[in-house]
């Protein structure tokens, strides 16, 4: 190693303590690609939101599906001829709502979501036709409120619902090392409890898929 060469080694400079041996412009020019990479990396990692959820794509049913589905079901239910004739004959329909039954393959539907998918439909129906429905508290919900010593209203045994509004979500799930895809079929039904007949049924279908990345 020549003396001249030693002057230009960073490590040699540190060892010899001679700061003047490496001109600033050469140092920065040689390292500029690394600095650029460092700055780019900092921008990528530090400046944007980068949480465990910020970039992941889920194939689960989400709030967009919730809104689309319940809006669609509201239109279909209120526009159904059989439902309209029942309303005309009986006036207000006494309806109890049941949470969604999860029949999906390998897809969990948490309790809150189960309630939300049916509760939003109830709210939309109530908004659209408040004089057509009387909503009866679900027995389980009534007992849960009672257990918390809150006023749950009249005993559900005294208010007999005539109809039940419920939904069943099914799916076909495919998962491989490369992707995950789900086809959903969400079926809502309005059942005549006493007659044991199906007054109305409507369905919503959607397919969701996501491609797995290198670190998935």
């Amino acid at each position: 190693m020549t003396r001249e060469f030693g002057k230009h080694l960073v490590l040699g400079k540190v060892l010899h303590g001679r700061q003047e041996c490496l001109p600033h412009w050469r140092f920065s020019r040689a390292l500029s690609p690394f600095l650029a990479c460092a700055l780019l990396l900092c921008l990528l990692t530090g400046c944007q939101e980068n949480t465990a959820f910020s970039h992941g794509k889920s194939t689960a049913l989400d709030s967009v599906n919730l809104v689309e589905m319940t809006d669609d079901m509201t239109r279909k239910l209120l526009g159904n001829a059989a439902v309209q004739s029942e309303m005309a004959a009986k006036g207000r329909l006494k309806v109890v709502i049941q949470p969604v039954e999860n029949r999906m393959t390998a897809e969990v539907l948490p309790r809150g979501a189960k309630d939300a998918f049916i509760a939003r439909l109830r709210n939309k129906l109530q908004e659209a036709a408040p004089e057509k429905f009387a909503w009866v508290v679900n027995r389980d919900a009534w007992h849960a409120v009672r257990a918390l010593e809150l006023d749950a209203g009249p005993d559900p045994d005294r208010v007999q619902p005539e109809y039940s509004l419920t939904a069943r979500f099914s799916s076909i799930t495919k998962e491989s090392s490369k992707s995950r895809s789900l086809y959903y079929l969400c079926t809502y039904t309005l059942n005549d409890i006493n007659g044991g007949t199906l007054l109305w049924t409507g369905s919503y279908e959607v397919k969701k898929s996501a491609v797995k990345g290198f670190l998935d």
Binding site: N50, F53, H55, G56, K57, V211, K212, G213, L215, D216
Partner: peptide, 8 residues
């Protein structure tokens, strides 16, 4: 979820 580790 997929693509969790994208975005830098």
């Amino acid at each position: 979820a997929t693509g969790t580790n994208s975005g830098g």
